Simulated scan of single mutants.
Amino acid sequence: MTATTDPLHIQLQPYLVERKNFYQLLHLLFSVPGNIDSLFEIKRDETFKELREFHDGGKILDRFFKHLNVEQIKREQQEFQRLFIGPGPLAAPPWESYYRSSEKLLFEEWTYQIRKVYHQFGLQYCKENNEPDDHLLLELEFMIYLSDLCLQETKDDRIEKLLATQISFLEEHLGIWIPYFCEKVIENTSSQLYLGAAMLLKYFLSFDLESLVEVREGLQLCLKIIH
């Protein structure tokens, strides 16, 4: 924490906002190109402009978006279907259970672990019991939701608990299976969009976990001093 008279939750605001923006960007990258406007929205995103300096995946994405056109978007739509939707065998299934089950099955124990965590926060997947709750986009949405709660919270001890929840979620879920998912994408695509997105996702989650642990430890120290 910096030496300032601002309350701790105010000091944390810039960091929390930046984290949320990155998660939203990653969510968009793996949601598109179903909606053509979304790709152009990413191109205009201020967070995206920072990626050129952030990681090699960001540089690849920067080159992709510089040459973005309607024909390219159509090709990415086809690649999106092939990688994540089907029909047919998927090149990179986007569900946690697939990577953690020895038989590559869905609706395994991890699906229900994830569901339990969602329920603890009053959340429920609208397609619960019909589609797995441990889809990549749902897990990223949960991190965005927790980031929002942190930004709305003014009590430092509550923020500390929310940070702890995000650390646990990364350690017990996203941080375990996402590296394997990203390797699948990297090995099975020539798309600069999904190559860059997978590289960035893998790196950012590792970076985010380290920074969350550091920030939480700093917050805990400040709370001890205050009390």
Rank of each mutant, 00 (worst) to 15 (best):
Q124D: 09
F121C: 00
N188Q: 06
C182S: 12
L162C: 07
K155E: 15
Q152D: 08
E171L: 11
I176Y: 05
K161Q: 15
Y145T: 00
E139M: 12
F169L: 05
N130C: 02
E131M: 12
F121Q: 00
C182L: 10
Q124P: 06
C126S: 09
E128K: 12
D133P: 13
L146Y: 01
G175H: 05
K116A: 15
L123Y: 04
I144A: 02
E131G: 03
C126K: 11
E160D: 13
L146M: 10
H173L: 06
S147H: 06
D133W: 06
L138T: 04
N129H: 14
N188W: 03
I159D: 03
F142K: 03
I167K: 04
L136D: 02
Y118W: 15
Q152T: 03
C182K: 05
S147I: 07
S147K: 07
L136N: 02
S168N: 13
H135Y: 14
D133T: 10
E160P: 08
Q152W: 03
Y118T: 10
D133V: 10
L149D: 00
E160Y: 08
S147V: 07
H119R: 15
M143G: 03
M143K: 05
K184T: 05
K161L: 15
A164R: 11
L162I: 09
I176F: 08
L146Q: 07
Q166H: 07
L137N: 11
I159K: 05
I144K: 04
E187R: 10
S168L: 13
V185H: 02
L149K: 08
D156A: 14
E128A: 14
L140A: 04
C182W: 01
D157I: 15
C150P: 01
N130V: 02
L137K: 09
L174N: 01
Y118M: 14
T154M: 09
L174E: 00
L138K: 03
I144G: 01
R158P: 07
D148C: 04
H135E: 10
T154C: 08
H119L: 13
L163H: 01
F142C: 03
M143C: 11
I176K: 13
S168H: 12
I186Q: 08
N188P: 06
E172S: 13
